[in-house]
Design a protein around this nucleic acid. Structure first.
Lengths: 111, 111
DNA sequence: ACCAAGGTACGAATGATTTCGTACCTCAGT
DNA sequence: ACTGAGGTACGAAATCATTCGTACCTTGGT
């Protein structure tokens, strides 16, 4: 098989608490910010995020994102990919993804 | 004096991580949801939220909300009040407060 | 069949959060 | 001046999160 889907919650079942908890972590938020910024919404290799943490910890974080319903995860045994669940997120929490762009307290347009 | 203001971060300094961390807790989120729902934005007694936790713990939670920049806190020695920093929040993270209404996974209009 | 790269499972250590007990403070009313 | 309601400070217990070490699995290539 070319890719097995690991599933998270249904679109309507996304829980705001789980979502905020997922986005509270800096590493997970950086992943989500990158995903939200790229509007092509292509599947992306889990290795392509430059996370300064061990792979075991990365496994943990990607799992949290999936269980919060923020990404779909694809397991190729060898390699893994995730894809932003943009439509589901926008449907249930419109505007949430746009917030990720407001990132650093310096703002997008300093002064 | 009739009310001393305890201060949190400036409007431009609101940190997304701190905000998400603050909103990740169920009790704090319930407070914020109530505040966001009432558009009068009046100062509100800290006692008026029916939190099922001890007062020491409430002190802790209100402090977290203030330090995240989500509310202003007013100390009357005897009694305390908080007020939603709606304008500041909307300016820095537009749409965030609206998300709090999407609360329970049942949705606002179940079938 | 072997190896290397990427990933997971399990468990442990560390760190942060949540919670409350005890003690104390402040104002309003009596 | 006393009391009661509401709040805080400090500290401790318990719980949850983050992180990684070790061991193992899977796929692709040699």
């Amino acid at each position: 098989m070319t890719g097995k889907n690991l599933d998270g919650p249904e679109a309507d079942a996304l829980d705001l608490g789980a979502v905020f908890r997922a986005l509270a972590d800096e590493h997970r938020r950086s992943v989500m910010t990158e995903l939200a910024a790229d509007h092509s919404d292509n599947e992306r290799g889990c290795n392509s995020f430059d996370l300064p943490i061990s792979k075991q910890t990365q496994t943990h974080h990607f799992r949290v994102l999936r269980e919060a319903g923020l990404v779909d995860e694809f397991d190729y045994g060898n390699r893994k990919g995730i894809r932003l669940r943009r439509a589901d997120i926008e449907k249930r929490f419109p505007g949430l993804l746009a917030l990720l762009g407001a990132g650093p307290p310096g703002g997008t347009a300093p002064r």
